[in-house]
Nucleic acid binder design. Structure first.
Lengths: 344, 344
DNA sequence: ACGCAACTTGAAAACGGTTACAATCTAAAC
DNA sequence: GTTTAGATTGTAACCGTTTTCAAGTTGCGT
């Protein structure tokens, strides 16, 4: 039933135009570029708009203008404080400049990420925010074919041809490991996040290892454990490390949640932190200051990082020239969980 | 420059149709209702589709079909584990049934919520997921005027005319308070979340108070403190409560984060939990099991709640009849943070 | 062979906006 | 008093789909 009563247009921009006695073009202009229409007309139009409770139909607008003022973001999971914070900042920024955000999750699965990207492009997003630079083969092609601007967040890779914004995870991890080495530790274990499809986790491990190597320290295979992002898994890893007869005196962790697990388990197994074991985290979540002992960790300004990602895309879309590779500073926050090793 | 070269259509469904030697109608059918086109045609079309890397243009589809297979959700903040979990579940469910989610945040501001709703409706969402039943006057009107289905999540109000799904916060809070009363406590304090524009927080306070009243217990004004959703604020509240010369022997908290703050601060001030102070939380976040002492709290199946909200809307949109008011069970999880009061 | 129902397919009109272009109307410059 | 540049407004084509309707096929009972 597509009959349209020519006499009375019930809704849409045409109804507004009819009521205000102007053309649809003028209504459109009054909405998108108010300065282009005379004050008197504008007044009539605005009056008609809220008399009718008119709400512009975004899809039609997108179809016609070929711009959606919408960005898409694909994160591995929203159920991770770091991503939640980042997304919150990004969204807040975008909303402040009149953009919207389409958020999807990939669950660390590259195929899913590709699928979601297709989905978002189909949806007409103007640009894409991606986590890291570890993507499906087809994703780059997809982005190139459809000329969709994008940026990789959470990593810093000045040598790569793709835009990115984030901290240098390798350097930050190096700093974390250097800290315990400076304290005098020579027996250092690593509990990292899963490295598969996670370049951030990998970079951190690389940084840890480089620090060890540079200082002539060995890393026995059993001193490096990978665990999922949960307290339970981290605790299990800690239990394993602490049960070794030849055990490390310090543990550097791929993120704060892992560090919390190590802290909790160490205490539960009768080890005193930092006396018997030094622990370093990475991310500086809220809990790190509050725990007892409080956690020495790497502080990363997540909110700023994601906001800058949004800025980059919005500016690019506005035709402005912007920096492709932006490094976000980290800092080592020394708290109670690290100390020199016991003299033996 | 809107000239269209009639000879060669570069993109879109027409390009696919041309390449497959069929009409656009058939391509559309092959995409939306494959059974309606013969296998041979379908094969030709599918071949053309991935030869061209064709991606349907959702806005055009929405414009034409008047359905977006997209839902909108407005939460106060994404930076709260409960909401993050809920949204994750909702999104996962929606994605499994071919829907997408538009997520926005209101920051507990009803005006912003209204604005976001307008935004989402403009975007063409088929339905809206809202947090609670505490909304702006104009929001109901907006939803009614535009015939947008919606559901209130996180509360249970069988008497209201609006659909909702969630736990009965009042009853759950009552259960929490009853627990410490059963243990023998007579001096019970409340540290709640901010009640303003937050019916969930209010319902919990109401439940706490009813339990006290029913058992003939007084609640001196200074024993009820409201705090924002942060560890720091909760700690400050705890410090205050514990500094009173006439202080409670048990504290029931509006959520787990508040309870963590109370736990941490009590310990820091030299009080032993649960010996000197019993603490009850609400939500059962991850940390509750891991803390020492572990936290007695109310378990709420957040994921299920939000998924059911999605189910309700999707089913409604499919024309199915569904329950308007669904109650989600809670349970009291007794752990180490509660015990009978010291005999005095 | 024929009629008829059931199934496939295509042509073309929406869907609700934007915007190129033309038309009209100013007011300043000559 | 003309021109004319500039500002304002309207007309109508177009954005990329879906969907109605009609037309063309096919299979089957008679």
């Amino acid at each position: 039933m597509r009959l349209t009563n020519a006499k009375s247009v019930k809704q849409g921009i045409r109804a507004v135009a009819a009521r205000a006695g102007v053309s649809t073009a003028s209504v459109s202009r009054a909405l998108n570029n108010p300065d282009a229409v005379s004050p008197s007309l504008r007044a009539r139009i605005e009056q008609a708009i809220d008399a009718l409770g008119y709400i512009p139909h975004a899809p039609a607008r997108i179809l016609s203008s070929r711009r959606s003022r919408t960005l898409g973001a694909i994160v591995p999971t929203i159920d991770n404080t770091m991503f939640a914070r980042g997304i919150a900042s990004l969204q807040q920024y975008l909303s402040s400049v009149g953009y919207m955000l389409f958020l999807t999750t990939s669950g660390y699965d590259l195929d899913v990420e590709l699928q979601q990207a297709r989905n978002l492009i189909s949806r007409g997003v103007d640009g894409l925010v991606l986590r890291g630079d570890c993507h499906h083969e087809g994703l780059r092609k997809l982005l190139a074919d459809n000329a969709v601007p994008f940026i990789n967040v959470g990593i810093y890779q000045p040598d790569r041809p793709h835009p990115c914004v984030g901290t240098n995870n390798e350097a930050a991890a190096h700093r974390a490991a250097a800290h315990v080495i400076e304290l005098g530790h020579r027996r250092i274990g690593i509990v990292s996040a899963l490295q598969r499809n996670n370049d951030r986790a990998s970079a951190r491990v690389a940084g840890f290892r480089r620090a060890l190597t540079e200082n002539g320290l060995e890393l026995p295979p059993q001193w490096h454990v990978e665990v999922p992002y949960t307290l339970d898994d981290a605790r299990e890893a800690a239990r394993y490390l602490l049960s070794l007869k030849d055990r490390p005196t310090a543990v550097v962790c791929g993120n704060d949640v892992i560090a919390y697990g190590v802290l909790l388990e160490a205490e539960r197994d009768g080890f005193s932190v930092p006396r018997d074991l030094s622990v370093v985290g990475f991310d500086d979540l809220d809990w790190s200051r509050h725990l007892r002992p409080s956690l020495t960790t790497i502080h990363v300004p997540t909110g700023e990082t994601w906001q800058r990602a949004g800025e980059y895309l919005v500016r690019s879309l506005a035709g402005e020239q912007t920096i492709m590779h932006r490094e976000i500073d980290f800092s080592l926050v020394v708290r109670e969980s690290t100390a020199p090793p016991l003299k033996s």
